[in-house]
Simulated scan of single mutants.
Amino acid sequence: MKSLLSSKPALWFLFLFNLAVAAVAPFVVEGTQGLMTSVGMGVVSLGAGVSLVRGRGETADAR
């Protein structure tokens, strides 16, 4: 499971999908629930983005 979640396509999907949901959630779901959904999805998106940036300098045989 770790190798699947650390693959570039999966990280890009997590980054973009969660970023889109974080941007739209406050407008679709009203109140505190929408805000907390946005914050949670934003944290997941940032985590995936950081993993993408960290892995940028690594070569394929370093993994």
Score class of each variant (00 low, 15 high):
residue 62 A to T: 07
residue 46 L to S: 09
residue 36 M to V: 08
residue 62 A to M: 10
residue 14 L to R: 02
residue 30 E to C: 05
residue 37 T to N: 14
residue 6 S to M: 11
residue 41 M to C: 12
residue 8 K to H: 10
residue 33 Q to F: 11
residue 21 V to H: 07
residue 1 M to V: 03
residue 53 V to L: 14
residue 21 V to L: 13
residue 22 A to Q: 06
residue 41 M to V: 09
residue 10 A to E: 01
residue 52 L to A: 11
residue 46 L to A: 10
residue 38 S to T: 00
residue 56 R to Y: 06
residue 45 S to M: 01
residue 19 L to H: 06
residue 9 P to H: 04
residue 18 N to Q: 12
residue 12 W to D: 14
residue 17 F to H: 13
residue 11 L to Y: 03
residue 28 V to D: 06
residue 60 A to M: 10
residue 37 T to K: 14
residue 27 F to A: 14
residue 35 L to A: 14
residue 10 A to G: 02
residue 57 G to Q: 04
residue 60 A to F: 02
residue 4 L to C: 08
residue 19 L to R: 06
residue 57 G to I: 00
residue 24 V to G: 13
residue 4 L to Y: 08
residue 11 L to K: 13
residue 39 V to C: 09
residue 58 E to N: 11
residue 11 L to P: 12
residue 54 R to A: 07
residue 38 S to R: 06
residue 12 W to K: 15
residue 5 L to M: 12
residue 44 V to E: 05
residue 49 G to R: 02
residue 45 S to A: 15
residue 48 A to R: 09
residue 20 A to I: 12
residue 5 L to K: 13
residue 41 M to T: 15
residue 26 P to D: 11
residue 43 V to C: 09
residue 59 T to V: 01
residue 51 S to H: 02
residue 16 L to D: 03
residue 39 V to L: 14
residue 52 L to Y: 00
residue 58 E to Q: 12
residue 8 K to L: 12
residue 23 A to S: 14
residue 38 S to W: 00
residue 44 V to Q: 12
residue 19 L to F: 04
residue 30 E to N: 14
residue 44 V to A: 15
residue 5 L to C: 10
residue 23 A to Y: 04
residue 3 S to A: 06
residue 63 R to T: 05
residue 8 K to T: 03
residue 57 G to F: 01
residue 54 R to L: 03
residue 5 L to E: 14
residue 54 R to W: 01
residue 40 G to R: 00
residue 4 L to H: 11
residue 42 G to H: 03
residue 46 L to E: 06
residue 15 F to E: 03
residue 13 F to I: 14
residue 54 R to K: 08
